[in-house]
Nucleic acid binder design. Structure first.
Length: 1030
RNA sequence: GCCGGGAUGGCGGAACGGUAGACGCGACGGACUCAAAAUCCGUUGUCCGAAAGGGCGUGCGGGUUCGAAUCCCGCUCCCGGUACCA
């Protein structure tokens, strides 16, 4: 058990076992030594064998904690430690003066070790930070503010690794901004209304509120363990009356401003259950729980008039948002320019249509109405009425999603009615078809089969006439019969009377000459007008659900609707509700809730719809400012200081809906005057409010997703002939269960480049070239297969319980500590991109944190200080400051951590060699801790205070780099010949062109290439490179 | 289909148009150990070579440039969004 030359301290018993060398005089060792997480359980060995520089000795034991020491100078031993986590670094003795440990005759007692025990240390700092109020954020007009916001979670029950991935870098950046001198607000809350709570209620007979609050408690505790700097005094929970009261208040303001209105919309209606279902509850046209059929039905519901802001929402000028997100929003809004044209039926009814191609009006050969269009009944003739009714019923039975499925054959029915094309008085038939949507444009189209793919398909299916009106440039004239497809390219207008001969191109709206000409002509004749349509619909906020914010409206007995006065808000969501198995909202049959009186004291009924939860999240950033404020949704004094949000982070999956809704909401609030008090408060503090209420979040950055770890490529069997190193395959077959030996090469594809596969056979990685005439057989992909369909690394999937690939952050924290988990998540991925989880990779972060602990707790001895090495370390420190500063500012967490790891590598080397002056070491250590503090808040705080600092590390200013110190004195100059690196020279950083050229030309290697001749050209970029062209 | 993003070692990923592969994981060799783990030292794109050195290399094919992972053109595949939007 004991190795000669080693002093072994057996903890617990107090016994000291010496083995032949210097025995420590350690009094009271044992329990007394248990301090701050140091719990020696087995054997602690210290090793200064005399004259054994650079040798190692070790003690062994069956216990978990074994110390292996390495000594460079017997008088200044340094300990390397190991154990279960490999993290048993050395503790400097001075922090434990008076801890009953006495030194014997040598330095060895300085080697009292202290274990890095993240669990204890993190718990300690969570409590102390809370007690010290470290993360309270208060208005302070003397400091610049920074409002950092990360999306609030839905309280689903458990914080998963995705939450960590989203939140820890946001937290790190908020901490960084604070150290940079900003007064930072970084709040957190819960988006607590929603369907899952209601499902839990029905399935598990637990009240949605109970379920929700239990989840919130759990998640709040988990978030504490993350070490986030959330100011919990500002927490917001959207299902609390003190929150949703103001959602209702906003609803009233929007109603007053005529931005909230009642309209008709299709809902998923279950005739058997007599209830409305959410889209998520409908699968294959049936209720997912009961299997009962679901139909589409029109119902009166509440809308916000978001389309009025469509054009303003398309303006991203003032926003620092990722381009893809802006594009997605722009596509979602889907502005299209064209004309509205009025047709008339033969009986004189108007049919308005919207078209982006009024220039093809002369080619309109029929019209199509949505099956639900109000004019259908009037148009339908007696002979067709049966067919029309049947088609309408069939369309109603489909969900919107099914209806919009692509690749479906066109269906439709002739109404028997006709309309007149206003431009040429042609009598054209009117059909109904479900490819026309009631909710877009006017729910009716003119069909121009010659120049619209869908109309062409429909015309061919039902034998309707096709009249070309565009003549493609430089091609044969389009002829009907015989057209195989619609023509949508450029050309010249024909067969179109007044606009014949006008050029048409692929531009949109008036940019297209033919469209401009047609609009002018239509407006002149009074047949139509220029018009803009949006794909964006008004925001339907009604939900026929219980667990949401009640819409504060009452239905009077005379049929009118009026708002609940502000003074009566909130309209409380009743708690004593029963959940019918049908899923029908309990509000619809809750007598106490339903019955009320209107403003005149007459009996009235409450609105039973609740609000879409996107309503809650459209203004939550305002409630954080003053979550308990009673007089208004937010305190103008707080808002005047903190607004707008400076940095918003969250998943790209919310890039469209949530971010568009909250933008709309802010703009509507601005126009309703709801920021007027805030603007006044700003002015009184000398802040110009101009333009500050146009957008809620100035900067937005999205993070990617962490996927499951599982991965595998196609397992293939390849046969063919060996051509040297590679197999020239004549046949490749995918077979997940192929046994080794069942073909020439059997294994998993690890890489594919064009037709070359790298196949992992289990023993080897071999190259297989799939010949052009080879047969490829992939049973899971129908049809003729080709080499491009062979996959590698495709089984990386989203984490899900059913796949069993969920990574539990609590487990990781228990094993490695929160600092390690944070560091790893910030290090391992390109944040915007995300990627698959790698359970081994986290060891790198764990070692890094352990090394930092070791560096900070080891006693540095400048055994061999050298001015040059000292300057070099300082340079590296200041370079690291520059890099981390830049990278944390730019959301490039992975390279920031990499820079710190590099510094760690350097410092480990210095610690070993003792080659820098003590003050340089101290500066390096302090810088390392300060730079790491935003990323790993717990361990850096512990080490910072252990070093004798009174104030929290998180209150320190971020280190500032001195460019002079960071500047390299000498650099490697690359010498290229014809762009290829041929030599490298160490030169001074201030080398001039002439010297650089001379040095380069003098190089033996270069001379070899010059072969006595003169270079054609020399490109000099001192001090980095010289390129010689010969 | 349309819109957006991407493709770099065995893996995650670095690289203002100027040394490709920083940093980490893994792997391999060594030290320590009865052994394993942990820790420490070293190697690690690939091919040729004993070495010095050289060839080839950023999905594929072209182009611009003294010089391209990076810019341009044309493809292939992957990921995300969206989908009968008139």
């Amino acid at each position: 058990m004991v190795v000669a030359g080693v002093v072994v301290l057996v903890a617990g018993s107090g016994a000291v076992v010496g083995a032949g060398v210097e025995v420590l005089d350690v009094a009271g060792l044992g329990d007394a030594v248990v301090v701050d997480g140091f719990k020696p359980e087995g054997v602690v060995a210290v090793d200064p064998p005399p004259h054994a520089a650079n040798t190692r000795a070790a003690a062994t034991t069956t216990a978990a904690n074994v110390l292996c020491t390495r000594v460079q100078d017997p008088s200044r031993p340094v300990i390397r430690t190991l154990g279960a986590g490999g993290l048993f670094p050395v503790m400097r003795r001075d922090h434990h003066a008076g801890q009953s440990l006495q030194s014997g005759a040598n330095h060895a007692t300085n080697l009292l070790t202290m274990q890095y025990d993240p669990a204890a240390l993190e718990r300690k700092w969570q409590d102390r930070w809370e007690a010290e109020g470290l993360y309270r954020s208060r208005v302070d007009w003397d400091k610049p503010k920074h409002y950092a916001l990360t999306m609030l979670p839905y309280p689903s029950g458990d914080l998963h690794i995705g939450h960590w991935y989203a939140m820890t870098p946001s937290d790190a950046r908020a901490r960084y901004m604070r150290m940079k001198g900003f007064n930072v607000l970084f709040p957190m809350g819960f988006d607590a209304f929603g369907l899952p709570a209601e499902n839990a209620a029905v399935q598990r007979n637990i009240h949605p509120a109970t379920w929700t609050y239990e989840n919130i408690d759990k998640m709040r505790a988990q978030m504490r363990s993350m070490g986030t700097m959330f100011d919990w005094e500002r927490e917001v929970v959207s299902c609390e009356p003190r929150y949703y009261r103001w959602s209702q208040w906003f609803f009233n303001r929007l109603f007053e401003g005529e931005l909230a209105y009642r309209g008709e919309a299709l809902v998923n209606w279950s005739p058997t259950l007599q209830t409305v279902l959410a889209n998520e509850q409908v699968i294959d046209g049936k209720d997912e729980r009961t299997g009962q059929p679901v139909v589409q039905r029109m119902m009166e519901q509440w809308f916000f008039a978001m389309t009025r802001y469509a054009d303003e929402l398309l303006d991203f000028e003032s926003l620092d948002w990722p381009e893809p997100i802006r594009t997605m929003q722009a596509n979602w809004i889907g502005r299209s320019e064209g004309a509205e044209v009025t047709f008339h039926t033969e009986s004189g009814d108007e049919i308005r249509v919207f078209t982006t191609r009024p220039d093809t009006l002369w080619g309109a050969t029929f019209m199509v109405l949505a099956p639900e269009h109000p004019l259908v009944d009037a148009l339908t003739t007696a002979e067709q009425s049966e067919a029309v009714a049947a088609y309408q019923a069939q369309a109603a039975a489909q969900t919107e999603i099914e209806r919009m499925e692509t690749e479906r054959d066109k269906t439709g029915v002739f109404t028997g009615g006709y309309a007149v094309n206003p431009v040429n008085q042609e009598r054209i038939p009117v059909w109904i078809a479900d490819y026309v949507l009631l909710t877009y444009g006017s729910g009716a189209i003119m069909a121009v089969p010659a120049h619209d793919e869908r109309d062409f398909e429909f015309a061919r299916r039902f034998d309707l006439p096709v009249v070309p009106v565009i003549q493609p440039e430089g091609q044969d004239p389009l002829r009907e019969p015989g057209m195989q497809a619609s023509y949508v390219g450029p050309g010249v207008i024909i067969n179109s009377g007044p606009i014949d001969g006008v050029v048409t191109n692929l531009e949109k709206g008036r940019q297209n000459p033919s469209v401009a000409a047609a609009i002018d002509w239509l407006e002149d004749k009074g047949m139509g007008r220029e018009s803009v349509n949006y794909r964006l619909r008004d925001w339907l906020i009604s939900r026929q659900r219980y667990w949401g914010t009640p819409i504060p409206m009452v239905h009077r007995s005379d049929g009118a609707v009026e708002p609940v006065p502000d003074s009566d808000l909130p309209v409380l969501l009743p708690e004593d509700v029963e959940f019918a198995p049908s899923g029908r909202s309990p509000l619809t049959h809750h007598e106490g809730f339903l019955h009320t009186v209107d403003s005149e004291g007459e009996g009235a009924t409450r609105e039973t719809d609740t609000m879409d939860t996107f309503m809650c999240s459209s203004w939550y950033q305002l409630r954080y400012l003053s979550p308990g404020f009673e007089a208004a949704p937010f305190d103008p004094e707080e808002a005047a200081y903190w607004l707008p949000v400076d940095v918003y982070t969250g998943g790209a999956e919310h890039a469209v809906m949530h971010l568009l809704y909250t933008r709309f909401f802010t703009k509507a609030m601005r126009d309703l005057g709801l920021f007027d008090d805030t603007a006044a408060a700003m002015r009184s503090h000398g802040r110009d409010p101009e333009g500050l209420f146009d957008e809620p979040m100035l900067m937005y950055r999205s993070q990617g997703q962490i996927l499951g770890e599982e991965r595998a490529g196609d397992r293939v069997v390849a046969d063919g002939e060996w051509d040297g190193e590679r197999l020239m395959a004549m046949s490749v077959r995918v077979d997940p269960v192929a046994a080794a030996g069942s073909g020439e090469v059997v294994g998993e594809i690890v890489r594919r480049t064009e037709n070359v596969l790298r196949v992992d056979t289990g023993t080897d990685i071999v190259t297989v070239e799939v010949r052009a005439d080879a047969t490829v057989d992939i049973p899971s992909i129908a049809g003729i297969n080709d080499v491009n369909q062979l996959r590698q690394h495709l089984e990386i999937q989203r984490m899900s319980k059913s796949r069993g690939n969920v990574v539990d952050p609590d487990e990781l924290v228990a094993r490695y500590g929160a600092d390690t988990v944070r560091t790893y998540l910030m290090f391992a991925y390109e944040w915007q991109k995300g990627g698959p989880w790698d359970s081994r990779g986290i060891l790198g972060a764990s070692r890094f944190i352990g090394d930092v602990w070791k560096l900070a707790t080891a006693e540095y001895e400048a055994t061999d200080p050298a001015a040059e090495r000292s300057a070099e370390l300082r340079r590296l420190v200041h370079q690291a400051i520059q890099k981390v500063d830049r990278d944390l500012g730019a959301f490039k967490w992975n390279t920031a951590v990499a820079a710190l790891m590099s510094l760690r590598n350097e410092m480990l080397d210095v610690l070993r060699s003792g080659s820098v002056q003590p003050d340089v070491w101290r500066e390096a250590l302090d810088s390392l801790l300060l730079l790491l503090a935003p990323i790993a808040p717990f361990v850096t705080e512990e080490l910072w205070r252990m070093a004798g600092n009174e104030a929290s590390i998180h209150l320190q200013p971020f280190p500032e780099a001195d460019p002079e110190i960071a500047r390299e004195e000498s650099v490697t100059m690359v010498i290229q010949v014809n762009g290829k690196v041929r030599d490298r020279l160490e030169v001074g950083a201030d080398i001039d062109e002439a010297t650089a050229t001379a040095l380069a030309l003098a190089s033996d290697r270069v001379q070899g290439f010059l072969d006595g001749g003169e270079p054609k050209k020399v490109i000099v970029r001192p001090p980095k490179l010289v390129n010689i062209v010969v």
